[in-house]
Amino acid sequence: MIGFFLILLIIVYGSQWVTAFSFIDGIASIPKALSWLVGNFYPTEKSLQKIPTILTKLVETLLLSIAAATVGAFFALFSAIFGARPTAFSKPLALFSRGLATLFRNIDVAAWSMILLFSFGQSALTGFFALFFASFGFLTRVFMETIDEVGLGAVEALRATGAGYWPIVFQAILPASQPLMISWTLFMIETNIRSAVLVGILTGSGVGFTFDLYYKNMNYNAAGLTIVFIAATILLLDRASNMIRRAIL
């Protein structure tokens, strides 16, 4: 027990040293940041004029997040069917799709966006592909787990009736896992919006870029207002997702 805390202490101290992090500065920054938040959440007349710009960019970001999650879910579905135990029909294919998903999942969206900047520049496609790859990787994994959980018994029963592969997939696997898959896709949309803000800051697109512009020009009222709109969108989406979940699960 004492050894455990000693190791923990060493880890904390070591981490503090390499990152040059100071707990005192950290704690000191909190009241300042919070008072900034309070001070700048009041919209001013000037910042209110930015609302149309903010909303346009926000809608674009929202659509991007939905598109990436939806297209990601579509490809993840096939990848998961080929990779999950109850439905895998070829070992090399299963390994390939699992490997692909692991690769895409383990490169963070931020890293993806910096990679994709070379091909798509500041166009919305950089964000789309970054979010799509991350969605594909994550959803493949959770879809595979979903199929693993719902699948084996029903697949065995239908194989025993002489049913072919695709009928089993469409009539047993999909109906059984659809609600969970939709639920995960909704979760992914929410995650994507958060990531999209980050990707936008890094690649200069969407509402992340809008925020970054205000922020860098120290137009904190407008930056604060952008945060309010982003947070409200995420909260609303969370509400809507939960309503849908309650109806389908």
Binding site: G162, G164, V169
Partner: peptide, 10 residues
């Protein structure tokens, strides 16, 4: 389903 084609079964 054992009696069905890929299409009608799916």
């Amino acid at each position: 389903l054992g009696y069905k084609s890929i299409l009608t079964g799916s």
